[in-house]
Structures are given as structure tokens and as C-alpha cells.
């Protein structure tokens, strides 16, 4: 490393070739990954962005012409899109909040050693390994009163007035995919938060309890500040990821009933594969991408601002 040569304080003269080789090292290490990402993701992305300005319909051989901003004009009038946008907010907000909350509690429960912790940890993290569409199929089965127990349990508990399928109830349908998503996503938060918890130096807690700090005070003044960076980055990543995550909704409700569970990502899927209108689908995807980028920038700027304030 050229950098290290300056760094150790001794002015070492090194052959030119070696300097060039050292300078190229990081690029060589990252080149294979970079080339693959550019050819398989960035180039198709650029192509996909260009589709947003073209009339691309899969079964229509006369399509393909540039039509400028027509898709976006149509989109601004599309009531189904606005409904999908509102549903996305609800779907993402509820899923991330519940996954985070339950994941944090689970991480705290697993933080201290106890008999059987290894086994408990392996079992509670298991849903993460279940393929998402299989999780969706399975949960729609569980919510079905003919073959699933959940409606009957809800009825017995008095939550429901009769054992019916919440997936076909327009008021409640969104809860189906949200519950499946929470079940599936708790392990992600629990794993990352548990890792962050275990990195907190133990003597801090001892010192605090010698000073007479109670458990709540220790949590607020030690645990939470240490976890804050991890919490910020995982919530950011998960929010973006869950807004794009349509598998469960497509498998469980297909956007229904009456579009009540249609989120933007599943709306894109419907446009592309049911109506085969790739141009319009790309335009919607581009708007979603812009919104998510804006959201991420906002979080990053907010974080910088908070850090600089300290």
C-alpha cells in the first residue's frame, strides 16, 4: 500500500512498478464483483429506465417507439397508482415497525447466556430460511377458515365475530401479508441487533450498576446509544427492501380484495406480467426508485446532521 509507506514515518523509496501495482490492488480486488454488477444490473437498469420513455408491449410487434413523458402523464392521472402508494406506506410502516420492535425484544432476550440458548436461537431464526413464496402460501392456508386454525382461534378469543378469512375482508386483508412478513422478517432484525448488543463492552454495565443505575436506566443510557447506528442502518435498508417486496402480497392476495392490498411493487408486477405493458411498468418503477432514493438521502442527511450536532 502506497498509503502505508507514507504512514510509518520512514521515507521509503520504492520502485515505480511496485507503486503502480500497489495502487492498482484495490481495483483488482473489486474488479470481478464490479464488472458483474455493471453488466448484469447497471446496464439492464439503464435499459429499463429507457423503457419508461418508450411504448414497450410484449405481444405487440409494432410497439417500441419513443413516446417521451406519456407514461408519466398517464401515471399522474392513475388513481390505482395513488392507492398503491398509500398502501405501500401502510404495508412498509407496519411491517418495519413490528419486525423491528419484536426483533429488538428477541435480541434482548437472547443477549444473556442461559441454558439452551444455542438451540432457542437456531429455532427462532428459522423462518428466515423459508422461501418467501412458500411462507406466503403457508400463511394464506393458516388464515383460511376451512383448512387453517387461525380464524377459529381469533373467533374463540373474541377478536372476530365469526371465523372468516381476513384475506377476503377489504378492511383487514392487509394484515394477512403484514403478519406473514413480520413472521418472516423478525430474524433479520434480531440477528443484526443481537450482534450489535454483543459488541457492547460488558464492564460498562457493571460500572453503571455499581453507580446505582437500574435496568431501565442502563438500557436508556448504555444499550440504546450503542445500538443507535445499527438501528438506523438496518431500518433504512429494511424500509427500502420491504417497499420493493411483493412476493407475499402476490402469493397471498394478488393485490385484492378490491385492490386493498395492492402496493406499488405488486402493481408494477401486475402491469408487467398480467398486462405485459413493460413501458408503463418501468415508468412506475422509476417513480418508486426516485421516492426511495429521496427517502434514503433524507435519512442519511438527517443522520449527518444529528452527528454534527453532538
Amino acid at each position: 500500500m502506497a498509503y502505508a509507506a507514507h504512514h510509518d514515518g520512514l521515507p521509503v523509496r520504492r520502485p515505480l512498478m511496485k507503486n503502480i501495482a500497489d495502487g492498482a490492488a484495490p481495483y483488482l480486488y473489486s474488479a470481478p464483483a464490479l464488472i458483474l454488477i455493471v453488466t448484469v444490473m447497471l446496464v439492464p437498469l439503464a435499459l429499463g429506465v429507457s423503457y419508461a420513455f418508450r411504448d414497450i408491449q410484449l405481444l405487440n410487434p409494432f410497439s417500441g417507439a419513443f413516446i417521451g413523458l406519456d407514461h408519466f402523464r398517464a401515471l399522474s392521472q392513475d388513481q390505482a397508482f395513488y392507492r398503491a402508494l398509500r398502501n405501500t406506506l401502510w404495508w412498509t410502516g407496519a411491517s418495519v415497525f413490528l419486525q423491528f420492535l419484536l426483533g429488538l425484544v428477541l435480541a434482548l432476550l437472547l443477549d444473556k447466556p442461559f441454558y439452551g440458548r444455542g438451540l432457542a436461537q437456531a429455532l427462532v431464526f428459522l423462518p428466515w430460511a423459508v422461501p418467501s413464496f412458500l411462507a406466503g402460501l403457508n400463511w394464506s392456508w393458516l388464515f383460511n377458515p376451512v383448512v387453517g386454525p387461525l380464524p377459529h382461534w381469533f373467533y374463540a378469543l373474541g377478536i372476530m365475530s365469526e371465523p372468516s378469512n381476513i384475506l377476503s375482508d377489504p378492511q383487514l386483508a392487509m394484515w394477512g401479508p403484514i403478519i406473514a412478513n413480520v413472521w418472516w422478517g423478525i430474524p433479520f432484525f434480531a440477528i443484526t441487533l443481537l450482534a450489535a448488543l454483543q459488541a457492547i463492552p460488558r464492564d460498562l454495565y457493571e460500572a453503571a450498576s455499581i453507580d446505582g443505575a437500574g435496568p431501565v436506566q442502563r438500557f436508556l443510557s448504555i444499550t440504546l446509544p450503542f445500538l443507535a447506528p445499527t438501528i438506523a442502518i438496518t431500518i433504512l435498508l429494511r424500509t427500502v427492501w420491504i417497499s420493493n417486496f411483493a412476493d407475499l402480497i402476490i402469493v397471498m392476495t394478488n393485490g385484492g380484495p378490491a385492490d386493498r392490498t395492492q402496493i406499488v411493487a405488486s402493481y408494477i408486477f401486475t402491469q408487467a406480467f398480467k398486462r405485459l405493458d413493460f413501458g408503463y411498468a418501468s415508468a412506475i418503477a422509476l417513480v418508486l426508485l426516485a421516492l426511495l432514493l429521496a427517502y434514503s438521502m433524507l435519512i442519511v442527511i438527517l443522520r449527518q446532521w444529528l452527528l454534527s450536532k453532538d
Binding site: P26, A272, L292
Partner: peptide, 30 residues
């Protein structure tokens, strides 16, 4: 992890970008 190099920032930004958009968008181009 180990190097500070020009373009590192862009590499990270590119990788973050790939996590941002719905992959459905890439089906037809790919």
C-alpha cells in the same frame, strides 16, 4: 475493508443503488 482508494465512495454508492429498485424492472432487459 483494507484500502482507501479513489472510487471507493462510488463503489459503495453503486452497491447501495442496486438494493434500491424493484428487480421486476430488470426482467425484460435481462
Amino acid at each position: 475493508s483494507r484500502f482507501n482508494f479513489r472510487g471507493k465512495y462510488w463503489l459503495v454508492a453503486l452497491m447501495l443503488l442496486t438494493q434500491m429498485f424493484p428487480l421486476v424492472m430488470l426482467v425484460a432487459p435481462i
